[in-house]
């Protein structure tokens, strides 16, 4: 049965009529055309599909769209504001923290979520926070460096 679901998507109030059981990842990708959220496993294991729901990283392949009703969803497309990249995005470019780039949106969103909770994480805390995001290309070393430098950058109140 279709229902109207209302939520905030990348800063904009949104409503959509659909089957509320549809998985968030496919609704974002298909209904909203936000294809930056990637499908890697569909089982909540790889992290490629991670989005922020009320500032907390969540695997969009594991939850039905009805669960975001009344909440704020941020995807990779919603991180930069008016073309200004988020410090984590900038740091990923500066440190070349990607190869094929397929894990990248999920990595960045997870990192943003981590920094929102803990603005000055230790290396151990970063490793721990990123542990469940998989990257097959082996960009890990640079991802850590990028997150560290973004953390430094963001501590001047630049946190979005």
């Amino acid at each position: 049965m279709e229902e109207t679901i209302r939520f905030e998507l990348n800063g904009k109030k949104t409503e959509i009529l659909l089957d509320p059981k549809l998985t968030l990842i496919w609704v974002l990708r298909t209904q909203f055309g936000l294809t930056g959220t990637k499908f890697g496993c569909g089982e909540g294991i790889c992290g490629a599909c991670t989005v922020l729901i009320d500032k907390v990283p969540v695997r969009s392949c594991t939850i039905p769209v009805r669960e975001v009703a009344g909440k704020k969803v941020t995807t990779i497309e919603g991180l930069s504001i008016n073309g200004n990249l988020h410090p984590v995005q900038k740091a990923f470019i500066e440190h070349d923290a990607l190869q094929c780039g397929y894990c990248t949106p999920g990595m960045i969103i997870t990192a943003v979520g981590l920094l929102l909770k803990n603005p000055a994480p230790s290396e151990q805390e970063i490793l721990h926070g990123m542990e469940d995001n998989l990257c097959r290309c082996g960009a890990h070393v640079r991802i850590i460096k990028a997150i560290q430098s973004a953390a430094k950058e963001m501590k001047g109140g630049k946190l979005s």
């Binding site: 990708r29 936000l34 294809t35 930056g36 959220t37 990637k38 499908f39 995807t75 990779i76 497309e77 991180l79 930069s80 990249l85 995005q89 990923f92 470019i93 070349d96 990607l98 780039g101 397929y102 990248t104 949106p105 960045i108």
Partner: peptide
């Protein structure tokens, strides 16, 4: 890199 960090890079899917 810029395309990939903003989610604009297009893959087959």
């Amino acid at each position: 890199a810029r395309l990939k960090v903003t989610g604009q890079a297009k893959y087959s899917g």
